[in-house]
Every structure is written in structure tokens, then in C-alpha cells.
């Protein structure tokens, strides 16, 4: 790890000011940033540790939406009564990210801003049609994710909270990567009054929506509706753990399981 400057601001304004030059990196849970620094794959000149900014933490609900601060840890999302009541599928997703150590450190905002193509949270944000609130503006999830590790965030722009619309039902099913336990394929489904959204992570170069599945499930939101579905493997990842055709197949399987989970929100 190379040497770097370190700040831990106590207010949002100070954090934004420190980040405004675009040279400093925000440090959330550090679950990705710190390992890459240790391996010297990244060497930021300065880190702005967001852990002491109170406005970035917390969960609130107005009955129609659920807003979660960017620095809220996975474990807190998984356990918060507001989340388990409003969007149990989101709580279950958070409770299955990484391992206990990661869940006790990693944050919602850190995961979304990093946009790892195999991370779980991007599927929830896109699948629920969340709004990402930054220090400058609000960005719809559909516009936020820009492919592998790329987002709409501009240099110095800080993700502060995420507002999730509360769906009628939502579920997530993940086929874990055997080694890393990221999503080899993860599918998030959410049913709203006006339609169904399906987001897929792990399978391609970044999280993406799956219109054919959304159409099938809009007709009938039951597991059988997606039976036999396999995505087109042409745009999917192929690596030593899964060929593209296997990932294409798993999208259908995980979609079905996600729908089943959405319909049984109290099941494990």
C-alpha cells in the first residue's frame, strides 16, 4: 500500500468539500478499495473516510418509499425492521452479501458506487427502480449503472442515499460464484402496480434489465411464467467458472427462484 492522506470529516458539507477536487477517493466500507490499495492496484492520493458523517446513515420509510443512507452497512439493512417489513427481498439480499465480516463493514453506497458487475446491490437498485441521491442531484437507477465499475457519478460527486419504491412483492435469487461468493448470476424481481422489473447481475459486463422476463412476469407473476427461459448467451460473460450458455440458463432458473421467494416473503 502506498502512502496517502486521510481525512474523516464529521459533516456532509466537509466531506463534499474534501472530495470536490476530484483527487480524493471516498472511503465507505473499504471492502473493495482497501484490498486494491494493498495490492497496489489503486493508489489514491487521499482518502475521505465517510464513517463519521451522520447524515449518510440511517433508514426511513414514508409508506411508499424506503430511503437508506449510503453508509448504512449490509448487516443493518438485513436486520432493520423497516426493511424486513417493507421490502423483505432487499433485507434478504443484504443478509447474503459476502460473509459476516463483509456485512459488518460493507455499505450500500460503497457497493453501488463501485458497481462491481457481480455485486448484489446493483440488482436490487435496478430491479426496484431506485433513485440514487447524490450530493448534486437525483439519478434514476436506469441511468446510474454504466457497465463494469462505471456509474453516472461525476468526479467529486458523493452518493448520499438511495430511495427504493416499495413494491408489492420482490425477491432475489443468487447463484454464488463458487470461490468469491459474488453472484455468478443473481436475479432480482420486483412487482409493482404498474408492472414488473427484473434485473440481472453477475452474468454480463454490468447489471442489466431483462425485458423478456419482465413481459412474462407482467402477464402472470408466478414462477411457472419464466419456466424454460434462457437468456441469449452472446452478451454474457464466460470464464473458468461458467460458460456463457450456463449463465444464460441460470438467469432463467434464478428468475424462477426469485419469483418464488417474492411470493413467500416470510420463507428463509
Amino acid at each position: 500500500m502506498r502512502s496517502f492522506a486521510y481525512d474523516r470529516p464529521a459533516t456532509m458539507d466537509r466531506a463534499v468539500a474534501l472530495l470536490s477536487g476530484g483527487q480524493a477517493m471516498p472511503l465507505a466500507g473499504g471492502m473493495t478499495l482497501l484490498p486494491t490499495m494493498k495490492l497496489r492496484l489503486s493508489a489514491p492520493e487521499a482518502l475521505v473516510d465517510l464513517s463519521s458523517v451522520p447524515e449518510l446513515k440511517g433508514i426511513s420509510s414514508d409508506g411508499k418509499t424506503l430511503t437508506i443512507g449510503a453508509m448504512t452497512r449490509h448487516i443493518d439493512v438485513a436486520r432493520a425492521p423497516e426493511v424486513t417489513k417493507a421490502i423483505p427481498g432487499l433485507a434478504r439480499l443484504a443478509g447474503r452479501i459476502g460473509d459476516p465480516q463483509v456485512r459488518n463493514r460493507g455499505t450500500l453506497g460503497g457497493s453501488l458506487a463501485n458497481n462491481d458487475p457481480a455485486a448484489d446491490y446493483p440488482a436490487a437498485a435496478l430491479g426496484l427502480g431506485a433513485t440514487l441521491i447524490t450530493s448534486k442531484r437525483e439519478i434514476a437507477a436506469d441511468d446510474f449503472f454504466r457497465g463494469m465499475f462505471e456509474t453516472a457519478l461525476e468526479p467529486g460527486e458523493l452518493l448520499t442515499a438511495v430511495r427504493f419504491p416499495i413494491p408489492r412483492a420482490a425477491g432475489y435469487a443468487k447463484f454464488p460464484h463458487p470461490a468469491s461468493r459474488f453472484a455468478l448470476v443473481g436475479v432480482f424481481v420486483a412487482r409493482f402496480a404498474d408492472g414488473v422489473r427484473v434485473a440481472v447481475t453477475g452474468a454480463g459486463p454490468g447489471v442489466f434489465r431483462c425485458p423478456p422476463l419482465e413481459a412474462r412476469l407482467a402477464e402472470d407473476f408466478v414462477p411457472e411464467a419464466v419456466a424454460g427461459y434462457a437468456a441469449d448467451p452472446k452478451t454474457l460473460n464466460s470464464d473458468i467458472h461458467a460458460e456463457a450458455a450456463f449463465r444464460a440458463h441460470l438467469i432463467g432458473v434464478m428468475a424462477r427462484r426469485a419469483v418464488a421467494a417474492a411470493l413467500q416473503p416470510t420463507a428463509a
Binding site: A179, S180, D239, I240, H241
Partner: peptide, 24 residues
């Protein structure tokens, strides 16, 4: 069931070079 050390046939690069890809 899990472990596999894999090299790229063309380049000789180790494809399972960390616990992110080498499954214990």
C-alpha cells in the same frame, strides 16, 4: 468438487491466481 488451478492456454497466465477464483 472445487479446487482448480487453471492457466491460460495461449499466454500461460494463471487464471486462478487468488481466492477470488481458486475455490477452497
Amino acid at each position: 468438487l472445487f479446487e482448480n488451478c487453471v492457466y491460460d492456454d495461449d499466454t500461460g497466465q494463471l487464471l486462478s491466481g487468488s481466492f477470488m477464483d481458486y475455490c477452497m
